[in-house]
């Protein structure tokens, strides 16, 4: 591997090319291993594919580039505060379209920070919601009969599902 390389090119599962800086790619363990194993110099033709679709990969790379400086050098409290605000804005996304894709990608790319953030976002969306509201938010189809539903509710007599 050439140590002079500052950014690498990767392919999304849709076949689009994306550039990601080396310091940002280090946030992901598999990408980091790839950096060590694969030749990323200019005369190398091999472009690794990441099994994440383009729309999701754009967001993942955006997250990595934002978090890389802090992850690599450590940051002051004011930086951490700013990053927290940025994370909240970053996570304002459509659930069906992208949040769960981000979760899958963070899981697949072993990105702990993004994984925790996306899980917390999904959790916050359902906190205090009724069962039918949660189904609507996450696009879940109720495949229980009303008798089954009633039986399940009886197993948790103390809990309100409405």
């Amino acid at each position: 591997m050439s140590s002079s390389v500052e950014a690498i090119t990767v392919l999304s599962s849709d076949g689009d090319e994306f550039k990601i800086t080396v310091s940002a790619a280090k946030l992901s363990k598999p990408l980091n291993w790839m950096l060590e194993d694969v030749c990323f110099s200019d005369d190398c033709d091999e472009v690794p594919t990441i099994e994440v679709n383009s729309k999701t990969l754009v967001k993942v790379i955006e997250y990595c580039e934002k978090h890389a400086p802090r992850a690599n050098s450590g940051a002051s409290d004011s930086d951490a505060e700013e990053l927290k605000k940025w994370d909240i804005e970053f996570m304002k996304m459509d659930v069906k379209d992208i949040l769960f894709h981000i979760l899958m990608a963070a899981n697949y790319l072993h990105m702990e920070g993004l994984y925790d953030l996306a899980c917390q976002t999904a959790a916050d969306l359902m906190k205090g919601m009724t069962v039918s509201q949660i189904r609507k938010i996450f696009h879940i189809k109720n495949d229980f009969s009303s008798e089954e539903q009633e039986q399940l509710r009886r197993q948790h007599p103390g809990c309100s599902f409405d």
Partner: peptide, 14 residues
Amino acid sequence: SVPYKDAVKFSVLS
């Protein structure tokens, strides 16, 4: 990541 009383709701979603 949610209070347990919310987690229980997963049991009746699908």
